[in-house]
Design a protein around this nucleic acid. Structure first.
Ligand SMILES: [Zn+2]
Ligand SMILES: [Zn+2]
Ligand SMILES: [Zn+2]
Ligand SMILES: [Zn+2]
Lengths: 158, 158
DNA sequence: CAGAAAATGATATATTATAACACTTCATCA
DNA sequence: TGATGAAGTGTTATAATATATCATTTTCTG
């Protein structure tokens, strides 16, 4: 069994650090500005491996002393999702940080209903099955979302 | 290529009629009451093969002379979705009628971004791929949603 | 028919998201 | 370097989606 969800007690600061570094790189490559606000929102999203709602981010910013309004958060989220640094989980109305922003995004997510963590899958077999199903019915794919809810290995076994 | 979306100019009254008959049967089998309000909401959802929002239903009911409040619509939707007569499309916050309420629901949907129609797929290969991916990462599935957006065959070729 | 359960009505409010316009910051180039 | 336009953020208002709570009505059961 491959590791999809990070191990308990992993060095999460390292996740955040690495995510920030990758984000810098992506922004740089895209000539996009990784402004203070965007960095703050991005960092807040990366506080955990859970998906976080726009208003949770708003509250967190307020708690930090920043008094921002919804549009500010939604603009940052729009920027980050368009660059693929953050993904939106439709069934949760929530956002979480992509840990491989440089890879192709297949839109496949495992969502643990117990611990709340989200993990992105990159599974060719699923993509192929979707593609094949589409061809079979004459459908031209623009975007696909696969949201799989259940129990992560940790939660299922503890 | 198999037909997934109904043909243009098909006899939609027949879709509605058949859907109502199936719904009656399901409710009967489940000892669930297919009340006037539930039937009205169900019928409104079946006015097209598109997904429809709760507030569109509310407006339609109002236009019919019924002055109902949001909870009334949401209750009907909850009832119908729990019985599998209606499905919720997460990425649209909208609901559409299941045309095979007696089959297993795999949660696979094709959504045409041009004409707005939704079609439910029942594709074992996709399900198997999802199941296999989950096993591969030690994930216990509770529910899966596959929402595929793009162009239906009609819209792609016209 | 009485009493309990289920469904709906009604009011209020919570949650999620966007429109519109003003102001500030930043990149660019004359 | 400083005018200029584009990009980003602030601010206010409001739209769109969804639920909590309690009152009333309808239906079922005995
Ligand atoms: Zn981590
Ligand atoms: Zn978990
Ligand atoms: Zn039809
Ligand atoms: Zn179409």
């Amino acid at each position: 069994m491959s590791d999809l969800f990070p191990k308990k007690g992993h060095d999460h600061d390292r996740c955040v650090h690495s995510a920030l570094a990758q984000a810098e790189k992506v922004c740089d490559a895209e000539n996009a500005r990784f402004t203070d606000m965007r960095r703050k929102v991005f960092t807040l999203i990366w506080q955990s491996h859970k998906a976080v709602t726009a208003y949770e981010l708003l509250d967190a910013l307020t708690a930090e002393g920043q008094r921002v309004q919804p549009p500010t958060v939604y603009r940052a989220l729009e920027f980050l999702t368009e660059l693929g640094l953050v993904h939106r989980i439709e069934s949760l109305n929530a956002y979480f940080g992509c840990d491989r922003p440089d890879c192709e995004h297949l839109g496949q997510y495992f969502i643990c209903t117990d611990c709340g963590r989200v993990a992105e899958a990159v599974n060719e077999e699923m993509s192929n099955a979707v593609r094949k199903a589409a061809i079979g019915v004459g459908f031209t794919i623009q975007a696909t979302t696969v949201e799989i809810k259940g129990l992560c290995h940790d939660c299922a076994t503890h």
